[in-house]
Amino acid sequence: MTPVWLGLIGLALTLPVPALLARAAWPQLAPAAGIVLWQSLALAAVLAISGAALSTALWLVSHDALAWWHIGLHVAILGVGVLVWGRFWWSARKVWSETSARRERQRQLADLLGEPHGALPAVRILAEQTPIAYCIPRRGDSRVVISSGTVESLDDAALQAVLEHERAHVTLRHDVVLEAFGVLHRAFPRPLRTDAPLRQSQVLVELMADDVARRRCGDQALARAIVALAGSDAPRGTLGAGGDALLRINRLRSPASPAARRASAATSLALSVLVIVGPTVTLAVPWMHHAVQLL
């Protein structure tokens, strides 16, 4: 029965649970803990599916004279497990190489086309009217790219907030977090795929960077920056996770109480532990005992 339980848990953690959690607003009160929760869900799903596949393999090998539907079910579970693992490695390689190539090209062009911003060597200003601001993450050698339009449309404090926000993305290695979710997103075959973990991690990562910028520059400077950059006239092909700007501004407008933030963090962390330890202790460990005895 273990393969079926693990398979069901894996399935639940892949589809309905993320969909439900994505609708909740409370994880955003403590974004760092929220990211940990989403990562734990993803890890637990992968563990459950892998466990299901492994236990299925053992089951198929150690039983004979079985009902056809019984075998069919187990083969299906094994199949999904192998598929997800295979796709995971393929996806990881693909995402890594595409991301690296893109970042490399961006960095080269930014270095050649951009002017350094005053005394900050890792910031490049592009001669472009549209307000843009983004970072090109890379270990030890990242860049923050802003346009001259950004510099002109923001006051000093707001510009500082933008730079602090982008630097937070780099320091907190949000690039790794987002890549990991990207890899997972592609690893699951389309019928099992959901946007929720990737979208939510994108939102939470912005909120984390916002929190750093707020501490250093104040809520108002950050608010001015968000409105200036998100509210500008959109030119070429900007597809937006546009809804985030409104969410971020409203968060600044009605900040959560410290108690609420603590409650959110505690809940996220408790659920993270539960979702990993739960199936491990109740299913995986007894199964491993059983497996050792069999082999």
Binding site: L198, T238, G240, A241
Partner: peptide
């Protein structure tokens, strides 16, 4: 040009236009 959720997060923007 970061189209939707399938593209890699090669860059991290400050705010996308709405």
């Amino acid at each position: 040009d970061q189209a939707g959720v399938d593209r890699t997060a090669a860059l991290v923007h400050f705010a996308r236009t709405v």
